[in-house]
Simulated assay, not measured.
Amino acid sequence: MTTLAEKAVALKSLHVPGDPVVLPTVWDAWSANLAVQAGFAALTMGSHPVADSVGKPDNEGMTFEELLTRVRQVTAAVDVPISVDVEAGYGEAPARIVEGLLGAGAVGLNVEDTVHSEGGRLREPAEHAEYVAGLRAAADAAGVHLVVNARTDLFVKKIGAESDRVDRAIDRLKLAADAGADVLYPVGFHSDEVQRRLTSELPLPVNAIAHPAKNDLASLAALGVARISFGPLLQATLAERAGELLGRWR
């Protein structure tokens, strides 16, 4: 692959319900090379592990420019499609997010509906969809089909009554789909029943989070998932193992 447009098309094509692409969540050139050498065809960069790697807190504790520095290091180190978690956008306009990511060599993004710079409030459904629409318009203008993964935090933040939370998440993500998202991410660990509802009722491929040591590919594939990522859990699991190794030398 030689162009960003080709990488974007390749990334989008990997999202197949029932045959999910696994995008190991990386944070620097070392972890990206580790994942590529293990045979993975595309990667995602998580805000939490990236922030940890530069000594900043998650939840937009680093700036967009600090994130882009890491993205450039990763795209210089590996020649596979890279998606980047941009949290809620770091207070930047959608056009600036797209310009920065494409300039750094990324071809996909996650965008969530928690606005950390405003007390952690959840964007209204139409507000989040409007931001997604801005991202899609900017990518279209740039001539690259940036793969937009629209995330909602309704489950992890336990917003509103549990009885209708799935319905509200589906309604919210359908608006994001209509606005131009390519993938939908109802982040959280769900029961099989809830996961099946999400994959069957949402109109686009669904991203699921997984624990690299506790979950398995076949089970999530059987639930209709199209994309699997690890959030901060790969880094955390490696940190636990490193702690065990280092503990032998105290």
Rank of each mutant, 00 (worst) to 15 (best):
I97P: 00
T63A: 07
V71Q: 09
A42F: 08
A126M: 01
E118D: 14
A88C: 13
G105R: 10
D52I: 01
E66D: 13
G46H: 09
A133M: 09
E118A: 15
K56M: 13
V84T: 01
Y90Q: 04
L67D: 08
A76G: 04
A42K: 02
V80Y: 00
V71K: 02
D85A: 06
V80M: 03
V132D: 11
R70N: 05
A76F: 05
A104S: 12
N59E: 14
A93D: 11
L43K: 00
D58W: 05
K56I: 01
A129F: 04
E60S: 02
G120H: 03
G91S: 09
S117E: 11
L122A: 12
G100F: 08
D58N: 06
T63S: 15
G119W: 01
A42N: 02
T114R: 11
D58S: 05
E112M: 08
N110D: 14
G119Q: 08
V132R: 08
G105M: 05
T63M: 12
V132T: 06
T44L: 13
A95M: 00
E127G: 13
H48P: 00
V36D: 01
K56F: 01
I82T: 01
E92Y: 14
S83K: 00
A51Q: 02
E87F: 08
Q37H: 08
G103L: 05
L68G: 08
H116W: 14
E127M: 11
G100W: 04
S53Q: 07
T75P: 09
V132N: 08
H128Q: 15
V36N: 01
G108N: 11
L67Q: 11
E124T: 13
G55N: 13
G105I: 01
Y90T: 04
R96I: 13
Q37S: 10
G46Q: 06
S47V: 08
V132W: 05
P57L: 12
R123P: 00
V36Q: 03
V111I: 15
M45T: 02
A76M: 02
H48F: 14
V98P: 03
R121F: 07
R72D: 07
V107T: 09
S83I: 01
D85C: 02
A129H: 10
P49N: 04
R123A: 13
A77E: 07
F40R: 00
A77Y: 00
A95T: 12
S83L: 04
V74T: 06
E66K: 02
E127T: 12
P49H: 13
I82H: 00
E66T: 04
L122E: 05
A133S: 14
V71R: 04
V84S: 02
V54G: 06
G46R: 09
P57N: 10
A129E: 03
E92Q: 15
G100N: 09
N59R: 11
D85V: 06
G46V: 09
P57D: 11
G100Q: 11
A106H: 06
E65R: 09
A106N: 03
G61A: 13
A126D: 15
E65D: 15
S47H: 10
G61E: 12
V111H: 12
E99Y: 01
L102R: 12
V84K: 09
M45S: 05
P49T: 03
R70I: 07
A76Y: 10
V80N: 00
T114L: 14
V86I: 15
A106Y: 06
V54Q: 10
V78P: 04
